[in-house]
């Protein structure tokens, strides 16, 4: 479905990618391309991870206004990072290998997010507003605890954490990039294999059970996938705010369908287009100093508000 629209999105993305890699690159191509290539890879990994995590989350919660970021998944990741530095001390922490740290973080993240969001989602499911509000306050709380711990940590150690708590694409660690790419690909592969099951789960709990899919078991699997995807993107560039909400809402507009195969593809393309295109325009064309994420937060926030205000109430 919507094959032409998907192809159009892919062509646009290719154009932006080419523009991002080529424009303004003078002289030493051997130097510029790998440098920009790494950054581009990070942008695309993050874009696809966030859009996929958001689609998954919206499917298991049966609504279109919740996203992992709004519910505080990435805030949880930053908190876990901070707690580790607080417990181990920055010296110890820096000594761990990047990849080792990363895998350990993801392990902790899995446990924490399953415990926290697993209970929250199964308890507050009936009352959407309460769940959204709980999620937002939870995110605020997690951020507050993080910033509290960051202040309690020695000011020298503080700098180590600070880098992780705000989205930026300036410094990308190559070793981390490889691990992130691997993990993301695995999670995406599993998600793709689940696409038909997701279609069934989206029909609602009763219909899903009737068709032989247990919602609880699936929710567990999907929460694991979301945790991995959010961990990867947060570790690479930091919290991405309203990006997920923005791109998935756009995907629903551009490819209005219940088919997850289409939805996963289109939201991933739109997400990559938003990040690569946005970065390209902001950085190369407009020469602005504001990070892309701030712009995304303004636009995404407005989209969220519109979605809330336009919802039909029973």
């Amino acid at each position: 479905m919507f094959k032409r629209r998907l192809i159009l999105l892919a062509v646009l993305l290719a154009a932006c990618t080419a523009g991002y890699l080529m424009l303004g690159a003078q002289g030493n191509w051997g130097f510029v391309l790998p440098f920009r290539g790494n950054k581009l890879a990070a942008l695309i990994i993050v874009a696809v991870a966030i859009s996929t995590a958001t689609v998954l989350f919206q499917t298991i919660t049966h609504n279109r206004i919740l996203t992992p970021s709004i519910m505080g998944f990435d805030a949880l990741y930053v908190l876990i990072l901070t707690v580790q530095i607080y417990v181990l001390g920055a010296q110890e922490y820096v000594h761990l290998s990047q990849a080792g740290q990363f895998v350990a973080n993801i392990g902790l993240m899995l446990v924490a997010s399953l415990a926290l969001f697993g209970t929250l989602l199964s308890r507050a499911r009936g009352d959407l507003m309460r769940m959204v509000l709980t999620g937002i306050i939870l995110a605020v709380l997690l951020r507050a605890v993080t910033s509290f711990l960051q202040r309690v940590i020695d000011p020298n150690e503080y700098a180590v954490v600070q880098g992780a708590s705000f989205a930026r694409f300036t410094r990308i660690d190559v070793e981390l990039l490889a691990v992130a790419a691997l993990l993301t690909c695995c999670a995406l592969l599993v998600t793709w294999r689940l696409r038909h099951r997701l279609d069934v789960l989206a029909l609602g709990d009763t219909a899903a059970i009737n068709l032989g899919e247990a919602p609880k078991h699936n929710m567990f699997v999907i929460l694991v996938l979301i945790s991995v995807l959010v961990s990867v993107s947060t570790a690479l560039v930091g919290p991405m705010g309203f990006l997920g909400l923005l791109v998935v809402s756009l995907a629903h507009l551009i490819t209005p369908t219940a088919s997850h195969a289409t939805l996963l593809l289109s939201s991933a393309l739109i997400s990559a287009l938003t990040l690569v295109g946005g970065q390209f325009i902001l950085e190369r064309v407009l020469g602005m100093s504001t990070p892309l994420i701030v712009v995304i937060d303004v636009v995404g926030g407005i989209v969220f508000l519109i979605l809330l205000l336009r919802r039909k109430y029973r």
Partner: peptide, 23 residues
């Protein structure tokens, strides 16, 4: 018994769900 096995033996008519109006 496995969920899926029962799903081929017994069906319940789901309440008209508004979860998937796009279908």
């Amino acid at each position: 018994c496995p969920n899926n096995t029962l799903a081929r033996r017994l069906a319940i008519l789901p309440q008209a769900s508004d979860a998937a109006p796009l279908l």
